[in-house]
Design a protein around this nucleic acid. Structure first.
Length: 982
RNA sequence: GCGGGGGUUGCCGAGCCAGGAAAAGGCGCAGGGCUUAAGACCCUGUCCCGGAGGGGUCCGCGGGUUCAAAUCCCGCCCCCCGCACCA
C-alpha cells in the first residue's frame, strides 16, 4: 500500500512553491474558467467536490493543451443563512450543534466559538481553503476574496449604479411570508410548518349590496373569468365575519381576512362583528353582468335608472360599459335591488344574486366570501342542489347554472361531473376536490370563453392575468395574497401571513429589451449538455422582476437607498471580473479607497483616460493601465461550470447582468451544468445531514481517489452516488496502478512484437479521452484514460508483453488532469519537470497499427471460438483451417463500397442475401471495421501465437486444413477460421 | 398544470441524435487459478435451450416504417427535477 496522502502533500507543496498555477497574462491563448463560489454556512461537501473537480480537470486539461489558464476561487457570505447560523450557535441550538459536529466535522469547542457571522466566515473560509488545497485544485490563490470585503462592496455599488443608470433597477412592492409576532419576513429555516407553501394571488372581485350605503362583498377566486357565471355568493353561516372600513369602502369579510388585509397594504377599521348567517339572504349586484346585460335590463327600468341604461346601451365597448356602471354603482345597486324585489325575472336574477350559506367555505382562506358558479365549480353545484332541498332556502336557491366556458365533452361541466361521480353533499370533500380538478384541467387547457364574457373566444389558460388586470383597473377588482398550503407556522409558534413589502427595489428582468439581449447571448454561447440551452431559454422567458433588496442579512447597501441591502444572489452576477482586481487588492496595490467608479469604468468598460482615472483614484497611471490590460486579457469568461441547482437562478442572473453591463465581445462563452452527489443513495443535506465533507473524503481516501471517483461516478446532469464500497474498490485500482508503474516505469525496453499493438491502442485512448474532455464528459474521459488503458496493459502483459512502460509517459500525461498527485510522483522518477504543465498527448495517426490491432482481435475471437467448441468436446488437439482464398476475394468486393451503409445497400439488392440480412450485416460490419482482416495472413498470425493459445486453452493447436472435415471448412470466413477438435 | 430530463438484461449504467453482433463497463453472484487459509489479485461464466462455434427470447406498454428497430414514426402508461426572490 502506498501512502497517497504523503505524495499528495508533497506535490501540493511543490506546486505552490513553483507557482505554476498562478496565472499572469502572456502571449499564449487564455482560458478563463470559473466555478460559482461556495456559500460558507458550512464546510465544503461532496456536491462542491463534484463541480470543482470537473472544473479543475478542465483547467488542468486546458493548461496542458497550451492555454494560459486562470482558475480562481472566492467565497460567498452575503445573505441571511450565516446570520441565522450564528444566532443558532449562540443559542446553542441542539439540532444545529448535532449537524455541525456530526456532519460538518466541526469540533464542538470550535463550533461554540462561532457565535457571530464574522467568526463563521473566518472559520469556514479557512477550512474551505484548506480543503481546496488538500484536494489539489490548480487554483490561483492570489485572487481569493469574500463578498463582505470592503473593496468587493465598492465593486457591487458600482455595478448597481450602472444598472440604475440603465433603468434596470426599479421600485415596486411584492408579497413575502411574514411573521406578525416577530414582525419580520420568515426564511425557510425559520419555519416550523409549511415549507412547501407558495404564495398565490387570489383575484378579489367586488359585488355590491346596499343598506344605508354601499356594502362591498369582496369575493376571492383563482378563476376570475367565472365572474360571468355567478349565481349567488357563499359565506359560512357558523363562522365569524366583520363589517369593516377597508380603504374607505365598507367591506364584509371573514374575521381572519380582516387581520390579513392589514398586511396587504389595506387600512382596516372594524365597524362590527357579525356571524355568517347574519348576512345570508342579502342581495348583491354583479356590476360586470349589469354591463353585459344592459340591453335586457333596459326593459324593466324606469325613471333615472332607465336613462342610465339607455346611456349604457350606447357604449359598445364592454369594458368601457363596465366602467360606466362602476361610476354609478351606488345608484345602480340601490335601484336594482329594489327592482328585483318587485320583478323577479330571469335577467334580473342574473345581476342581483343572493348570499347563501355553505359549510365548505373556509373563512381562513382569502376573504371568506366566495362567488358561486355552479356551471363550472362542483362545490358550488352540489351545495346549491343541497339547498334546493332545504325548506328555508328553496326559493332563493332555485337558480340555473350559467355556462360561460365551452369545452368539448360537457355542456354544464360541474353538473355532469358531479353527477358522474355521484356526489350528493358538499361534505364529500375528497370527491369534490377530484371533480374540481377534472373540471379545472379540462377547462383550463381546452376551454374557450363564450359570448357572454368579456373576451369571447379567448382560451381560459390566457384569460386570468388579463382579466385580473382589467378588474383592478375598473376598480372592482383587487388581489388577495394567500398561502397555497396551510398552516404556515413560524418557529416562534405564530401563524405566518402574507405581507406586502412596499417600495422594494427590483431588477427589471421582465424588461423585453433586456431579455432580447439574453436570448442573443444564449444563441451564441455553448451550453453543456446542449439540451440545457432550451431549458435556459424557457427560464429566461419565464423570469419576472426580482426583488433585489433586503432589510436583513450580510451584504452591500444599495448605494442610493442605504436602508436596503442588496440581496445575496443579486450581488453575485458579474463578480468573475473581480478576480482581476482581487490580485491587486491582495497584493496591497489596490485598496478600497482607490476603487472609485471612474476606476471601474476604465478597467471594465474602457471609459475615460488613464491619467484622469489615476488621479481620481489616487493610483499611478501605470497600475491603472496594467489592471485594464489584465482585464482585457482574461475577459470574457470562457467557461462557467456549475451544479444544476443554479440554472434557474444564479446562472440566469449571470447572463442577464453580463449583457446589461458588458459589450457583446465580453459576454461569457460557455456554461456547463453537472448533477448532484448523493450518499449511499441518500440525498445530502447541509442543514440536516447526511453530508460528506470534502475534507473528510480526502483525509479518508486521498485526493486522487476522491477526484477520480467523483469524475467517474456520473456524467453531465445525472446524479452521482458516493458509495463507500466502490470508493474502496477504486483505492485498490489506484494501488495496482501505482505498483504497475513502480515495477516498469524506469525499466529498459527490450523490444517485443506486441509493442506496436500497445502503442496503437494508446492512440485510441488519447483520441477518446480528448474527445470526451472537449465535451466535458469526465466519466467517459476517465473511463478511456484509465480503465480502458489498464485493460489493454493487462492484456498486453498476459500475452507476454515485456515493455508496458513504452506508453507510460503518455499515460501519465493523459491521467494528470484527473489524478495529478500520483502522476506527478511517478513522473518525477524519470523527469525533472511537472507533468501538470507538460503537453497533453496528441493523437498520432502514424502510430496506429491497424494490422497489429486486427491481429489481436483475431486471436481473441479465435480463442473464444475454440473455447466454445471445447465446451462440448473433450479434445486434446484443435485443428484450424483459415478461410479459402476465394472467400477473401468476395470480401474484397464487398469492401469496394465506401461505408457500411453503402455496402449494405448494394448487398441488400440481392434477394438471397436479403433473407440473411442479419448475418450479412454482421460480416460486413466486421470486415469494414477491420479492413486489414482480408489481407491478414491468418496462418502466420496463428503460428506466431501458437504457444500462447496452447497455454491459454490447454490443448494442442495445429494449423492444418487437411485435418478439418469439409463440412466444417464450408463455414469458414475471412477472420473466422474453421475449427475442428478431437 | 407548464417546462426540461428519463424508463435498457439481478442492481448501477453505456448505446438512441447519424437503424445493422444478447446489447460496453462496473457491482453482485458462481466456478477455476494463486494461496497453509481468508482477503486481495488473475482467468471464466452469469436471459433460456444446446454433446461443435448454433438456436430462441429480449431494451416501460401497444401499433407502424424497414431486408433489419433499444435506436426512426404514432398513441399510451409511469418516474425524476424546476416553477422563484432562497442559497
Amino acid at each position: 500500500m502506498v501512502d497517497f496522502h504523503e505524495i499528495e502533500r508533497k506535490w501540493q507543496e511543490e506546486w505552490r512553491k513553483s507557482r505554476i498555477f498562478e496565472a499572469e497574462p502572456d502571449e499564449r491563448p487564455k482560458f478563463f474558467i470559473t466555478i460559482p463560489y461556495p456559500y460558507l454556512n458550512g464546510n465544503l461537501h461532496a456536491g462542491h467536490t463534484r463541480t470543482l473537480t470537473i472544473g479543475d480537470a478542465v483547467a488542468r486539461y486546458m493548461r496542458m493543451n497550451g492555454y494560459n489558464v486562470l482558475f480562481p476561487m472566492g467565497y460567498h457570505v452575503t445573505g441571511t443563512p450565516i446570520i441565522g447560523l450564528a444566532e443558532r450557535i449562540a443559542k446553542k441550538d441542539p439540532e444545529t450543534i448535532r449537524v455541525y459536529t456530526e456532519y460538518h466535522d466541526v469540533p464542538l469547542e470550535e463550533l461554540l466559538k462561532l457565535d457571530t457571522p464574522e467568526k463563521i466566515v473566518e472559520y469556514f473560509s479557512r477550512e474551505a481553503t484548506k480543503a481546496l488545497k488538500s484536494i489539489g485544485y490548480s487554483i490561483d490563490w492570489r485572487r481569493t476574496f469574500t463578498t463582505m470585503d470592503e473593496p468587493y462592496q465598492k465593486f457591487i455599488e458600482w455595478q448597481y449604479w450602472k444598472l440604475k443608470e440603465k433603468g434596470l433597477v426599479v421600485k415596486g412592492s411584492h408579497p413575502v411570508r411574514y411573521c406578525p409576532n416577530d414582525e419580520n419576513p420568515v426564511e425557510d429555516h425559520d419555519l416550523m410548518k409549511g415549507e412547501n407553501a407558495t404564495i398565490v394571488d387570489f383575484t378579489v372581485i367586488k359585488l355590491y349590496s346596499f343598506e344605508e350605503n354601499l356594502v362591498v362583498f369582496p369575493c376571492a377566486t383563482l378563476r376570475p373569468e367565472t365572474v360571468f357565471g355567478v349565481t349567488n355568493l357563499w359565506v359560512n353561516p357558523e363562522k365569524d365575519y366583520v363589517v369593516a372600513e377597508v380603504n374607505g369602502e365598507k367591506w364584509v369579510v371573514s374575521k381572519e381576512a380582516a387581520e390579513k388585509l392589514v398586511h396587504q397594504e389595506k387600512e382596516v377599521k372594524i365597524i362590527k362583528e357579525v356571524k355568517g348567517k347574519d348576512v345570508v339572504g342579502n342581495l348583491v349586484v354583479n356590476p360586470v353582468l349589469v354591463a353585459m346585460l344592459a340591453e335586457e335590463l333596459l326593459e324593466f327600468a324606469s325613471g333615472d335608472l332607465k336613462k342610465l341604461f339607455e346611456e349604457l346601451c350606447k357604449i359598445k365597448d364592454r369594458k368601457e360599459r363596465i366602467a360606466k356602471v362602476v361610476e354609478n354603482i351606488e345608484f345602480i345597486v340601490k335601484e336594482l335591488i329594489l327592482l328585483f324585489k318587485e320583478v323577479k325575472n330571469s335577467t334580473l336574477r342574473m345581476v342581483v344574486v343572493p348570499i347563501l350559506p355553505a359549510s365548505f367555505v373556509d373563512t381562513d382562506n382569502a376573504t371568506g366570501v366566495v362567488m358561486s358558479v355552479p356551471a363550472h365549480a362542483p362545490y358550488d353545484y352540489v351545495a346549491l342542489e343541497e339547498l334546493k332541498k332545504s325548506s328555508e332556502f328553496k326559493e332563493l336557491a332555485s337558480i340555473e347554472p350559467i355556462v360561460l366556458i365551452k369545452v368539448e365533452e360537457y355542456a354544464v361541466p360541474a353538473k355532469e361531473i358531479s353527477e358522474e361521480l355521484g356526489i350528493k353533499s358538499q361534505n364529500e370533500r375528497e370527491l369534490l376536490d377530484k371533480a374540481t380538478k377534472i373540471v379545472y384541467r379540462k377547462e383550463f387547457h381546452k376551454g374557450v370563453l363564450l359570448d357572454n364574457t368579456l373576451y369571447p373566444g379567448m382560451h381560459v389558460s390566457k384569460v386570468k392575468d388579463v382579466l385580473q388586470r382589467d378588474l383592478i383597473e375598473l376598480g372592482i377588482g383587487d388581489i388577495f395574497y394567500e398561502f397555497s398550503e396551510k398552516p404556515v407556522v413560524c418557529r416562534c409558534g405564530a401563524k405566518c401571513v402574507v405581507k406586502i413589502v412596499r417600495d422594494q427595489w427590483f431588477l427589471n428582468y421582465s424588461n423585453p429589451e433586456w431579455k432580447k439581449k439574453v436570448f442573443e447571448l444564449l444563441d451564441r454561447m455553448r451550453i453543456i449538455p446542449d439540451y440545457y440551452k432550451e431549458e435556459f431559454r424557457n427560464k429566461v422567458e419565464w423570469l419576472k422582476d426580482k426583488a433585489c433588496a433586503r432589510r436583513k442579512g450580510l451584504g452591500t447597501r444599495i448605494p442610493w437607498d442605504k436602508e436596503w441591502l442588496i440581496e445575496s444572489l443579486s450581488d453575485s452576477t458579474i463578480y468573475m471580473c473581480y478576480y482581476i482586481l482581487a490580485k491587486y487588492i491582495n497584493a496591497g496595490k489596490l485598496k478600497a479607497e482607490n476603487i472609485k467608479p471612474e476606476l471601474l469604468d476604465y478597467v471594465f468598460l474602457g471609459k475615460g483616460k488613464a491619467e484622469d482615472v489615476a488621479e481620481k483614484s489616487n493610483l499611478s497611471k501605470e497600475i491603472v493601465e496594467e489592471i485594464r490590460r489584465e482585464f482585457e486579457y482574461w475577459y470574457p469568461v470562457d467557461l462557467r461550470s456549475s451544479g444544476k441547482d443554479l440554472v434557474a437562478n444564479h446562472l440566469l442572473f449571470f447572463l442577464f447582468h453580463h449583457v446589461a453591463i458588458f459589450p457583446p465581445e465580453l459576454w461569457p462563452k460557455a456554461i456547463a451544468v453537472n448533477g448532484y452527489v448523493s450518499l449511499e443513495g441518500k440525498k445530502m443535506s447541509k442543514s440536516k445531514g447526511p453530508l460528506l465533507t470534502m475534507k473528510r473524503a480526502v483525509s479518508e481516501f486521498g485526493a486522487d481517489v476522491t477526484r477520480m471517483y467523483i469524475l467517474h461516478a456520473a456524467e453531465y446532469d445525472s446524479d452521482a452516488d458516493w458509495r463507500r464500497k466502490d470508493v474502496e474498490n477504486l483505492v485498490a485500482h489506484l494501488n495496482r496502478f501505482y505498483a504497475l508503474m513502480e515495477e516498469y516505469y524506469t525499466k529498459d525496453v527490450e523490444g517485443c512484437f506486441l509493442d506496436r499493438w500497445l502503442i496503437s491502442r494508446m492512440q485510441k485512448a488519447i483520441k477518446e479521452t480528448r474527445k470526451a474532455m472537449e465535451n466535458l464528459q469526465t466519466r467517459r474521459a476517465v473511463n478511456s484514460a484509465f480503465f480502458e488503458v489498464m485493460n489493454d496493459v493487462k492484456w498486453y502483459l498476459r500475452r507476454g508483453g515485456k515493455n508496458p512502460q513504452i506508453i507510460f509517459d503518455d499515460w501519465l500525461k493523459l491521467l494528470a488532469p484527473f489524478i495529478p498527485h500520483i502522476c506527478e510522483e511517478i513522473w518525477h522518477k524519470k523527469h525533472n519537470s511537472f507533468v501538470s504543465v507538460e503537453s497533453y498527448p496528441e493523437y498520432d495517426e502514424s502510430k496506429v497499427d491497424q494490422v497489429a490491432e486486427v491481429a489481436e482481435e483475431y486471436i481473441k475471437s479465435l480463442m473464444d471460438d475454440i473455447k466454445e467448441v471445447l465446451k462440448f468436446v473433450d479434445a486434446k488437439v484443435v485443428y484450424i483451417a483459415p478461410a479459402e482464398e476465394w472467400k477473401k476475394e468476395v470480401a474484397k468486393v464487398a469492401l469496394e463500397a465506401k461505408n457500411f451503409k453503402e455496402a449494405m445497400k448494394e448487398l441488400m439488392k440481392d434477394e438471397k442475401l436479403r433473407s440473411m440480412g442479419k448475418e450479412v450485416s454482421n460480416f460486413v460490419k466486421k470486415v469494414l471495421k477491420e479492413k486489414e482482416l482480408v489481407d491478414l495472413d491468418e496462418r502466420k498470425v496463428i503460428e506466431e501465437n501458437i504457444e500462447f493459445l496452447e497455454k491459454e486453452l490447454g490443448v494442442k493447436v495445429v494449423v492444418d486444413e487437411s485435418k478439418v472435415p469439409e463440412e466444417k471448412r464450408k463455414s469458414s470466413m475471412p477472420g473466422k477460421p474453421a475449427v475442428y477438435a478431437e
